[in-house]
Simulated assay, not measured.
Amino acid sequence: MALSRRTPSFAAAAMIYAELYDGISPMVQRVSLRVAGQGSTAMLELKNVETQGSQRWSLADMRQVPDQASADAFIFAPDNAGPARLVIREREALRILLSALPDLKPLRPRNGSPLRLLGLAGAAVVAFGAILFALIPFMADKGAEMIPPATEMALGQTTFNQIYPAMGAYECTDPAGQAALAVMQTRLTDGLDLPYPVQVHVVFDPSLNATALPGGYVTLHNGLIQAAETPEEVAAVLAHEIGHVAHRDGTRAVLRRTGSFGIIGLAYGDFLGSSAVAAVTQQLVNSSYSREAEARADAYAHDLLAHAGVSPASLAVFFERLRAEGLDTDLGVFRHLSSHPGLLDRIAASTAAADHGFTQGPPILSGAEWGALQSICQNSAHTAIDKS
Rank of each mutant, 00 (worst) to 15 (best):
P78Q: 00
P175F: 08
D174P: 02
P102D: 11
T258R: 00
G112P: 00
L224S: 05
Y17W: 10
I242L: 05
L343S: 11
R335D: 06
R252I: 12
A227H: 07
D386Y: 06
A227F: 06
F261C: 05
R95T: 14
R91G: 11
V28K: 11
P206H: 08
A179T: 10
G332H: 08
V200A: 10
T251G: 03
T359S: 12
S274L: 08
T41M: 15
G119P: 09
L365V: 06
S54Y: 11
L188V: 10
V280L: 05
R257F: 03
L322E: 09
V218C: 02
P231I: 08
F358L: 06
Y196Q: 09
A295W: 00
D67A: 14
Y21V: 04
L192H: 01
A235M: 13
A144G: 15
R89E: 12
L284Q: 04
G361V: 09
A60R: 15
G269E: 02
A368Q: 15
G112M: 08
F128C: 00
N209C: 05
G361I: 10
Y164I: 02
D205S: 12
M27N: 12
R248P: 00
Y17G: 00
G332W: 10
S350L: 06
E92I: 12
T281N: 13
L101T: 12
Y268N: 09
L101R: 03
V183P: 02
L107M: 13
S113D: 02
L331V: 12
A313T: 04
S4V: 13
G371T: 14
R56P: 01
M43E: 10
P66E: 05
L20S: 05
I16F: 09
A130Y: 08
A316L: 04
A71S: 14
L59W: 05
L115F: 13
E171A: 12
E19C: 10
Y17N: 00
T219Y: 01
A93F: 05
V234Q: 05
L208K: 07
A84K: 13
R95G: 08
R110M: 11
Y289E: 00
L94F: 03
S113H: 15
A77W: 05
T281I: 07
D61L: 15
I225Y: 04
A182M: 07
G361H: 09
L104R: 06
P363E: 08
R91A: 13
A235W: 06
S287R: 08
M184T: 04
T159F: 03
V310S: 06
R296D: 01
A127T: 15
F133N: 03
G191N: 12
G262V: 02
F261M: 12
N80I: 02
G361S: 06
P26H: 07
M184G: 07
R296T: 02
D141V: 07
